[in-house]
């Protein structure tokens, strides 16, 4: 059983990962990143790209442990052109060709623009990027992202930073069932039980940031998420027990106690 677990890897862009928890690095102290990565067991950490501060500001890269795969996002992009531009800047900064496409036009709900996301995915995949597009969970869009060369899809569970959980559950399930790509549930996952449920559904991984950044104890929550994601993955691999729509089925022998 142990051996089977060890072989259960997540493959993205030809790279194997043992962790299925992608950790965000936003909205908390740089000093906590190393402990968060450790307690999350994370092998992939997301970053944003912004106008630089001068020297006195610390460099986030020096806080991320060696060996972690950097996943820069294109947040701030309003269309495919801007996302491609940010992806190029990010690759120049870290040498990693992994990129999470994030394109938003709407500032209230911060919903991803699926059409522009497909365009950016196509351009960047052709250039050799490992493209992980953040998307609104729509099966037709998912299929277009597969054709565009995405390495995985990252559907939102609920609006970014809302901690409201699997609001789009049924539509994420369609992506999991129909797409031949890893489905990484991103955005809106607020607590470990929701991450666990996403993994039970067959998600390949879960990404979380705000759930940790707004928790009382960030590193303890990182550890709780790790355990929940592992539990959900194991449950999925084991095959969930069936659900009875009607009636009941006792787990005990069906003989009356001291009566027969």
């Amino acid at each position: 059983m142990q051996e089977k677990d060890e072989k259960d890897t997540l493959v993205l862009g030809g790279k194997e990962f043992h962790s299925r928890f992608i950790l965000g690095s936003g909205k908390y102290s740089l000093q906590l990143i190393e402990a968060a990565v450790r307690d999350a067991g994370a092998e992939i950490v997301t970053l944003a790209v912004r106008r630089a501060q001068t020297k006195e500001h610390e460099n986030i890269l020096s806080y991320i442990p060696e060996g972690v795969t950097l996943l820069p996002n294109t947040s701030g992009a309003r269309d495919a052109h801007e996302a491609v531009r940010i992806a190029h800047l990010a690759r120049e900064l870290c040498g990693s060709n992994f990129v999470k496409i994030e394109i938003m036009r709407d500032t209230k709900y911060l919903l991803p623009d699926n059409a522009e996301t497909i365009r950016a995915t196509e351009i960047l995949a052709k250039e050799g990027f490992v493209v992980l597009p953040y998307m609104y969970p729509d099966l037709n869009v998912g299929r277009d992202l597969v054709s565009a060369g995405a390495a995985a899809v990252m559907p939102l569970a609920a609006p970014i930073g809302s901690n409201r959980g699997l609001a789009t559950r049924d539509f994420i399930q369609m992506l999991i069932d129909e797409l031949d790509l890893p489905v990484i549930v991103d955005a809106g996952i607020g607590k470990p039980s929701q991450a666990c449920e996403a993994m039970e559904m067959g998600a390949a991984a879960v990404m979380a940031n705000t759930a940790l950044a707004t928790a009382g104890n960030l590193t303890m929550m990182a550890s709780a998420f790790r355990q929940a994601i592992d539990a959900g993955r194991k449950a999925y691999l084991s095959g969930l027990g069936r659900v009875l729509v009607r009636g009941a089925a006792s787990s005990d022998p069906l003989t009356g106690f001291l009566r027969d």
Binding site: S25, G26, L47, V49, R51, A52, I60
Partner: peptide, 10 residues
């Protein structure tokens, strides 16, 4: 001219 670096993000 844009001078760009990484910062924390999700």
């Amino acid at each position: 001219v844009e001078i760009i670096s990484f910062m924390g993000g999700g």
